[in-house]
């Protein structure tokens, strides 16, 4: 059975992630309804506006479905707005969204659009020369012990992994460099074979 990876399709850079998943040799589907989560082995939460996505998530009862998707052990990869959706805590806000990853994040932490930038960074286990595009980007203020910091930029945490969750403050989907998505695809493959093995 081919591995299928979903891209949460409520708003944002959906098409780019689909392209990236397909370039990594997997099947991609755009997830607009919560029922579609059953068809996918892993999920990407794309970049976009986190407040918009949250409103649409609430409107269609997506929240619990997404949380149980993550808790069932299926991998989730959040980029930018997706990273904010995954975080347990958001600086300056009383509440967070999916609260799946043990980290505190700050929204628009690198500044407004005119401060947005690209830079070459090193991502542990992925690449030492990754062209990262930061757009009104957040960063991670704090991670818990079992969360691995994969990349920092000017001392700020911009990529992290905690078990089957992966998050980046930048947008790999805006480049043709598929190494990070490929890393996530491997996480999905691993989790899938583990699930199949334990089902036997």
């Amino acid at each position: 059975m081919t591995t299928t990876i979903g891209v949460l399709g409520l708003q944002g850079a959906i098409r780019e992630h689909v392209k990236s998943i397909e370039a990594c040799g997997k099947q991609a589907i755009v997830v607009k309804k919560k029922e579609q989560l059953e068809e996918v082995d892993g999920l990407i939460l794309p970049g976009g506006e986190s407040t918009t996505m949250r409103r649409l998530i609430d409107r269609y009862d997506f929240l619990d479905a997404l949380i149980s998707f993550g808790q069932s052990g299926k991998p989730i990869f959040g980029t930018c707005a997706g990273l904010i959706l995954l975080a347990k805590e958001i600086e300056g806000q009383n509440d967070a969204h999916l609260k799946l990853m043990d980290m505190v994040v700050a929204r628009n932490a690198f500044g407004r659009q005119k401060e947005s930038f690209e830079a070459t960074i090193e991502i542990k286990e992925v690449a030492n020369d990754f062209d990262a595009v930061f757009i009104r980007a957040p960063y991670i203020l704090e991670v818990k012990e079992d969360t691995e910091v994969l990349a920092t930029y000017q001392g700020k945490i911009v990529a992290a992994r905690q078990e089957h969750y992966l998050a980046t403050a930048f947008h790999p989907e805006l480049t043709d460099d598929h190494r990070l998505v490929d890393y996530f695809v491997k996480m999905v493959d691993e989790s899938k074979s583990q699930r199949l093995a334990s089902a036997k």
Binding site: G12, E16, Q113, E118, A119, I135, R136, H171
Partner: peptide, 21 residues
């Protein structure tokens, strides 16, 4: 090196608005 105002950064910002109002 940090590059601000590149095409990728400027066009990318609009990409993030897709599907929105």
């Amino acid at each position: 090196m940090t590059n601000v105002g590149t095409n990728r950064v400027k066009r990318g910002m609009a990409e993030m608005q897709k599907g929105g109002v």
